[in-house]
């Protein structure tokens, strides 16, 4: 099994985000030097001042689109990139900053800035896939470095990356955790959230807050209805669904539905 001979030319781009997802690559300490050996790092501002012009074979895109300028920049990056992978909740769902999508942007700007006229920002924070075609989405806030390495490995080998799409519950139970919702009544998004984090929140005695976004094929309403019947206030369910992946459709729609009930 021979991998394609040429090392893919890799670029890492950033939009509105915290930098944490691209840091995941630098956090792969044991494999970092091997990984950078597999690819030709052409553009990765956080790691190196070496900048090589496009086009790029692979682009990792972090962050969401929140400014008119970024709306244009992502189009250019798409044109320059062979395989475009979005990494993290900002890029795949708009991130925490997508909370502005439910607010009045002017109010938001005035809350934070004394001179609002200087702020050039869109009224929404949206996922990269809302703007350009995306070849693969890696979820998480932040992403899991092992999944990122798998993605890079897969690309080098010329195959489709393999990340699992089941619920957090399966990982949670395999670690021997007790279901926190059943045993304590605390709301947990594990049943409707995609695997990837290693079920850390329930492992640390707290409910999952959904940072890997919705799992494939979920019945969010069944869970929220049940939690509300069991005593969770609808007003508490809304922010639970509306945080780092509030822009992901199933979470967004369900939070809107519950909000309309209150």
């Amino acid at each position: 099994m021979s991998a394609p001979a040429a090392r893919p030319k890799l670029a890492v781009f950033k939009f509105a985000s915290c930098d944490g997802c691209q840091l995941s690559l630098l956090d792969a300490e044991d494999q970092l030097l091997d990984v950078v050996g597999l690819v030709d790092i052409a553009y990765f501002l956080e790691a190196t001042s070496k900048i090589v012009d496009g086009p790029y074979d692979v682009a990792l895109v972090e962050g969401s689109i929140t400014t008119p300028r970024d709306e244009e920049r992502i189009q250019e990056i798409r044109r320059q990139s062979g395989y475009l992978i979005t990494i993290g909740a900002c890029a795949t769902a708009g991130g925490i900053q997508a909370l502005r999508n439910w607010a009045n942007l002017d109010d938001f700007i005035r809350t934070v800035y004394a001179s609002p006229q200087y702020i050039s920002s869109l009224s929404t924070s949206t996922a990269i896939a809302d703007h350009v075609a995306v070849d693969f989405e890696l979820r998480g806030c932040p992403i899991n470095q092992y999944q990122l390495i798998e993605v890079i490995q897969a690309l080098v080998a010329g195959r489709k990356p393999h990340t699992r799409t089941h619920s957090v519950c399966m990982d949670c139970k395999q670690q021997g955790n007790v279901c926190i919702t059943v045993a304590t009544g605390e709301p947990c998004l594990g049943p409707v959230t995609q695997s990837g984090c290693g079920a850390i929140c329930p492992t640390y005695n707290r409910g999952c807050y959904g940072c890997y976004g919705p799992a494939k094929q979920i019945h969010a309403q069944s869970l929220t209805d049940h939690l509300i019947r069991q005593g969770t206030a609808p007003a508490e369910m809304v922010p639970l669904l509306r945080n780092f992946n509030s822009g992901a459709e199933p979470f967004r729609d369900e939070s809107n539905r519950i909000e309309s009930l209150t």
Binding site: I96, I109, T111, N243
Partner: peptide, 21 residues
């Protein structure tokens, strides 16, 4: 870096969420 308005959207959130946000 585009603005992300943390201080604005923290308003109205539960204080327990603040460390995560």
């Amino acid at each position: 870096e585009p603005p992300r308005f943390f201080e604005a959207f923290l308003q109205g959130r539960k204080l327990e969420e603040v460390p995560d946000i």
